[in-house]
Design a protein around this nucleic acid. Structure first.
Lengths: 112, 112
DNA sequence: CATGACGGCAACCTCCTGGTTGCCTATTGA
DNA sequence: TCAATAGGCAACCAGGAGGTTGCCGTCATG
């Protein structure tokens, strides 16, 4: 059972998108619900605008952000769905581990 | 605020480790609390033993599994701590987003 | 004690990732 | 209308990730 709930899509791409400090920082900036332009998201970072753009597209492909063209700006905002999907997956795994926690002690005991 | 709780270590490496289907499958196999040898974890997969070994080391570096040498075997078992760390981070982000959900709706309604 | 199972190590390959630079288009607004 | 701002596109690069093969050491046991 790779996925606790087969109805949900593969969570690996979401985790992969979350597995980068720069992208976590971007998500954090967007955490206040405001949609921001690429230029706005590129300030306060040592990276170039293009690097930020690439990261935003990774987040978008994973469903973690959505983009909207407004005039000459591309505004990005956080999406809850993908985050909830990741949370649901981890909760499912955690629950699975909880259910069999008793057997975990066998790990140490099986050593001999 | 990149990390909701600065006392916690950087969650990015954990998410990066989770961002691969093969590794999620390995974690899932270990979800019953049983410690398994590399050979045991290498059955039922098209990959070679060495590929599985590499994935297990990635999981171990992220703290998601622990290894124990038993005779000629290396047994791996799931660790709860790193998983809880990832869950705590996502919960923190989710809570942050909840607090400002009202402002999000304008964007979402336009984008969807 | 010899043989097979377990697995570590290292080299190698390919493709992806994170980042850069350069350039071009489109929108804005004085 | 024209300069400045926002950003898309493409080439390029270095390094890392995922995977393989080959070989060698170690432990268990018939």
């Amino acid at each position: 059972m790779l996925n606790p709930d087969p109805a949900l899509p593969d969570p690996a791409p979401i985790f992969a998108a979350l597995g980068d400090r720069t992208r976590l920082a971007l998500l954090s900036k967007l955490g206040d619900g405001q949609a921001r332009s690429i230029a706005a998201l590129s300030t306060d970072t040592a990276l170039t605008r293009q690097a930020i753009t690439k990261h935003l597209h990774v987040l978008q492909d994973a469903g973690l952000v959505a983009s909207l063209r407004v005039g000459r700006e591309s505004r990005f905002a956080a999406r809850r769905e993908a985050l909830n999907e990741a949370r649901a997956y981890l909760d499912g795994v955690s629950r699975q581990w909880d259910d069999t926690l008793g057997r975990l002690k066998a790990f140490v005991e099986d050593a001999d």
